[in-house]
Design a protein around this nucleic acid. Structure first.
Lengths: 142, 142
DNA sequence: GACTCTTGACAACATCATTGTCATGGTTCC
DNA sequence: GGAACCATGACAATGATGTTGTCAAGAGTC
C-alpha cells in the first residue's frame, strides 16, 4: 500500500488528538484510554500535547479492527502486540489475510511492520501495524 | 513435563463433562459455552455423551489462564488459537515463558503442542495447548 | 431408580469498551 | 486576547461479555 503522499516519514508525530481521532473514527476519550492501557504511546510536545504519527494511526486502526470487527477485548489486543514484538514475526499479517479476503480487493495484505500513511484510500483497506510496540503497562487490579 | 502416568495417549477421550470440569476447575456450563464458541470440540459417544481427552483438558487450561489471569475474552482466545494453527509455530509458548517466570519454578516451559496429561502436579504448572485446534465457529451476531 | 447426561432457555452479577460530561488550568491560534 | 483546544482526574450511562445458577423435559448409566 502506498505511503501517505504528503509526509513520507510514518514515524513523525504530527497529529493532535482530535485529528487522530477523526482519522481513525474513534473518540478522543477512547484514545486516552488506549494510552492508559499501554496499547499506544503517542509523542508529546514540550508543553505536553499529544502528537500521533502514522505508525500510531495504523496501530489504532488495528486496535479498532480487533475490538470492533473481531470482538477482541483490550487485554487480548495487548497480548497480540506482545507476541508480535516477542516473536519478531508478522503474526497479525495472518489476520490481515483474513481481512483482505473478507473486506477489500487488495490482494497484497500489508504487514504490521510496513509503513502506511493515513491516506483515505489506505484507511479503508486493511490496516498495518507498526513495529516495536511500547511495553504494555500492567492493567490496574480490579 | 511428564505425561499422565495413567494413560499415555493424550488424545484418547476419556472424561465426561463433570470430571473434566473438576479437573480444570470450571463449571460444566462453562465448558458447554466454550464448545458453543468453537474453542473446544470434545468427542461424543454413540449416545451423544461428551468425552474429553488430555488434549482437550490442556486446551481448557489455556483458555482459563488467558481469561482469568490475563483478562482476555473468548474472541481473543479464539484468535490466539487461530494464529497457532495458521502460523504453525508455538506462539503461546512465548506466553508460557511469562507464566513460568511468574507462577512456578518449572524452567522448561511446555509448548502448546506437547502432550501432557491432567496429572495434579502437571495441572498446577504452566498449561500446554494441544495442536490442531478445531475450526472456530463464527460468533453469533449481536 | 438415583444420578448424570443431553438440549434449549432465562437470569444475576461483575467486568469491560465506548462514549458522554464535568471541573480546573494551560496552550494555541486567529 | 479570547475562542477553541489541549491537559488532568473523575463519575456515569449503555450495551456487551464471562461465569455461574437454575429450570424443564427426556435419555442414558451404574
Amino acid at each position: 500500500m502506498q505511503r501517505s503522499r504528503f509526509d513520507p516519514d510514518p514515524s513523525r508525530p504530527v497529529y493532535v488528538i482530535s485529528v487522530a481521532a477523526r482519522i481513525v473514527a474513534v473518540h478522543p476519550r477512547t484514545l486516552r484510554i488506549y494510552e492508559d492501557e499501554g496499547l499506544i504511546e503517542p509523542a508529546r510536545t514540550p508543553t505536553n500535547i499529544r502528537l500521533y504519527s502514522d505508525h500510531d494511526v495504523r496501530r489504532i486502526l488495528w486496535i479498532r479492527h480487533l475490538t470492533q470487527d473481531r470482538g477482541v477485548n483490550l487485554a487480548g489486543v495487548r497480548i497480540l502486540f506482545e507476541l508480535e514484538e516477542r516473536l519478531g514475526v508478522r503474526i497479525l499479517e495472518a489476520l490481515s489475510d483474513e481481512w483482505t479476503a473478507g473486506n477489500c480487493d487488495d490482494a497484497a495484505a500489508p504487514s504490521l511492520r510496513d509503513s502506511m500513511g493515513p491516506d483515505p484510500e489506505a484507511l479503508t483497506s486493511a490496516p498495518s501495524a507498526p513495529s516495536a510496540p511500547p511495553a504494555p503497562r500492567p492493567r490496574s487490579a480490579p
